[in-house]
């Protein structure tokens, strides 16, 4: 019974090889017809002969030794090809998931940054945009590379601040008053410094990689 099974398998393998050899010979004959009529034909025929030899030898050696694998034959025979396709699909899904996680991470970082900046006095509305680069480390998603903050100066109006707070009255003694624009510039610089400090300390980001834009 076992002998019959082995014989059948062997017969099947030989029949496969014969079939493949016939197809390969046909293929090379067709390819031969495609060759241009010049003195390069000789050279191409040699290469094609080698190719046929290889195509015939490889399955034969596969039968003779089971563990044999030709390293130069990095090939896509049909079953391997299928496995590759499945693996490629799996990799694709993993890539999509990673991309989604990366986007979500970026959004959360931006929200967190906005919340942090809103705690700084004289900051009204804030919008953040973060450039994150992926990190090839287990458990890590990305590293913040660059942060851009758009700030609208003014008081942060929350629902608990219904009564307008008393504005500070500045009394200047002397002849020269500081121009309003200059005072505003000073406030802007202070806000900018504070924002940069907060983000730099909290996210360990270098100060030159933080940009603050007033709008």
């Amino acid at each position: 019974m076992t002998n019959k099974l082995v014989g059948d398998t062997m017969l099947q393998a030989i029949s496969d090889i014969v079939k493949n050899v016939v197809i390969i010979i046909l293929l090379t004959n067709f390819l031969d017809m495609l060759l241009p009529n010049n003195n390069m034909q000789r050279l191409i025929k040699v290469v094609m002969g080698l190719f046929v030899l290889l195509a015939i030898l490889n399955p034969l050696i596969g039968i003779l030794s089971d563990d044999y694998e030709l390293s130069a034959w990095q090939l896509s025979t049909l079953p391997e090809h299928k496995v590759d396709t499945v693996l490629a699909q799996g990799q694709k899904i993993v890539n999509i998931q990673q991309e989604q996680a990366f986007l979500e991470y970026r959004k959360r970082i931006e929200k967190q940054m906005e919340a942090l900046i809103k705690l700084i006095p004289n900051v009204g509305q804030v919008q953040c945009s973060v450039k994150v680069e992926p990190v090839n480390k287990v458990g890590a998603i990305g590293r913040i590379k660059y942060a851009t903050v758009w700030v609208n100066p003014g008081e942060n109006k929350t629902q608990f601040q219904l009564v307008k707070p008393v504005e500070p009255v500045n009394i200047q003694i002397g002849e020269k008053n500081e121009p309003v624009s200059r005072t505003q510039e000073k406030i802007y610089t202070q806000i900018k410094e504070k924002i940069i400090n907060v983000i730099s300390n909290y996210y360990s980001l270098e100060k030159e990689n933080i940009e603050v834009i007033f709008y």
Partner: peptide, 11 residues
Amino acid sequence: LALKANINMFY
């Protein structure tokens, strides 16, 4: 044809 004959596509 090559796919049917299990020929390496690289070659």
